[in-house]
Design a protein around this nucleic acid. Structure first.
Lengths: 278, 278
DNA sequence: GTATGTGAAAAAGTTCACAGCC
DNA sequence: GGCTGTGAACTTTTTCACATAC
């Protein structure tokens, strides 16, 4: 079948997974004092890091799980458990040292090295992302741009010259690209993906609404904006049914539930992004 | 505490949630023959719909769970269970009628009505999304654009005139906007959100890396591109540890596990997007 | 024979609640 | 007193496996 999946998972062989109690998953090699980090936790660590960085900039020395959790939009028990997977960096009765925690989360997320990003497809969205400051400022400088359109090849966007997709292997190797972003039209996405994989890129963020086929060992995350919209649409519809019928919307009396559903499971939370072709 | 969460959830009151066995959640009002649809399923339904639409265009009359699952990047058991939540529209020994299934999934996702979208923040990303065909083509026409910049107010993008954010309530009401997209800088996001909420918009897709405060009854989904990058980074780091130490990467002998982790949990998969302020 | 639909089992993720330490 | 770290309880999600229907 060779369909996706990655975490040890039930179907998997008798891997070296923890006994029970700890959600198993993602065994970091010989990282000191760090348990395996659950997939869902990884996504939230990135959120915590953003908040923590802001706090560090404002020179806050320590933060409690309660404060950090509130700022990140999760509850404090979850936050503490998440942090416990990467080690014990808090002080009971006090809280967490902000600077230390930033350091540890960054280490866990592999942000101690720079990740050079290549962007394939300099259309509408690609163009915007190339100029999007949010990448570079958070340690992911876009260093290569590619397209097939001869009108685009050669132009400069945010200081980077657009190369022809044929040059992906060459340019990616030269600039040490580790992450590829695909913003091509759907029909060109698989080709872009193949080129990136051939260039040795093993992490891909895919904005094209197609399921990418990748060999084992390549990770694809998918962002499908239309899917996000449809999920919102579902909840609009749900609200309306409730309103009309009087069912739903009336249950759950404790403040904070009902419709405002967010944060729920930031989990590894992403779409079925790719099929593995071994 | 008033922190996010929405699904009935454990902390919640004694809501009208199903007994056990069925994952509870999201009780559709009086929808005929449809159980409650789990949050994780909703996200995947949107993916199935994209595949099904493609099949309908190619006039495929029926599809088996195996085929559809493969095309969507999930396994067939999950697909069948997902579809079972919206009703029994398959034929044993045959498969699913494509046209019928498209219809049912669309109904479940609330796609029988049009959803008019307003976009706040016509910078780099906002501009790109305004011109992004993927929204309109899948039933989410962008009908309003807003910004504070006087240089932008008044110009036309993809045929739509940019209005000043002050006019959000007026314009949104007039154009029947049901979904708001926030692509402002982080500092302006909360203000944009408040304006949208004041205008009666109850579904928001937030691209700004901040936690939005919203009143009860408003749903926020968050797309944080830097977080996506960091999750990829984590896996890059994990791979490297494995390679260097010989640990990891060696377990899990069945084809299809190890690193190529995708699809795993498309779930409700999104980031802690907002805090509820009741 | 073939493929759906679904209980039951397993796994993953979340929350509780409290022991342990400052 | 206050707050972290975590086992245990619980919920949600995924997978299995097979009865049921065509």
């Amino acid at each position: 079948m060779t369909v996706q999946r990655g975490v040890p998972g039930p179907g998997g062989g008798p891997a070296g997974r923890p006994v029970n109690g700890a959600p198993a998953q993602i065994a970091l090699g010989p990282e000191p004092g760090a348990r395996a980090v659950p997939e869902a936790t990884v996504a939230r660590l990135a959120v915590y890091l953003r908040v923590l960085t802001g706090m560090a900039e404002r020179d806050l020395p320590t933060v409690s799980s309660e404060e950090l959790a509130a700022a990140a939009g999760v509850n404090s028990a979850k936050l503490r458990k998440d942090l416990s997977y990467i080690g014990s960096y808090g002080t009971r009765g006090v809280g967490y040292d902000v600077a230390l925690l930033v350091e540890q989360v960054e280490r866990t997320l592999g942000l101690t090295r720079r990740h050079s990003v290549a962007l394939v497809g300099v259309g509408n969205l690609g163009h915007a992302l190339a100029g999007y400051g949010g990448f570079a400022s958070r340690g992911f400088p876009v260093t290569a741009l590619f397209d097939v359109d001869p009108d685009l090849v050669g132009i400069r966007i945010a200081g980077i010259v657009v190369d022809h997709v044929e040059r992906i292997p060459e340019v990616c190797a030269q600039r040490g690209v580790t992450i590829g972003v695909i913003t091509t039209p759907p029909s060109a996405a698989q080709g872009a993906c193949d080129a990136l994989v051939a260039a040795g890129v093993r992490s891909i963020l895919n904005f094209a609404p197609v399921l990418l086929q990748v060999p084992d060992g390549v990770e694809v995350r998918k962002v499908d904006l239309a899917v996000e919209m449809q999920i919102l649409s579902f909840h609009v519809a749900r609200r309306q049914h409730g309103t009309l019928s009087g069912v739903d919307c009336v249950d759950d009396v404790d403040g904070g539930a009902a419709v405002s559903r967010n944060g729920g499971n930031p989990g590894n939370g992403h779409l079925p992004g790719a099929v593995v072709v071994p």
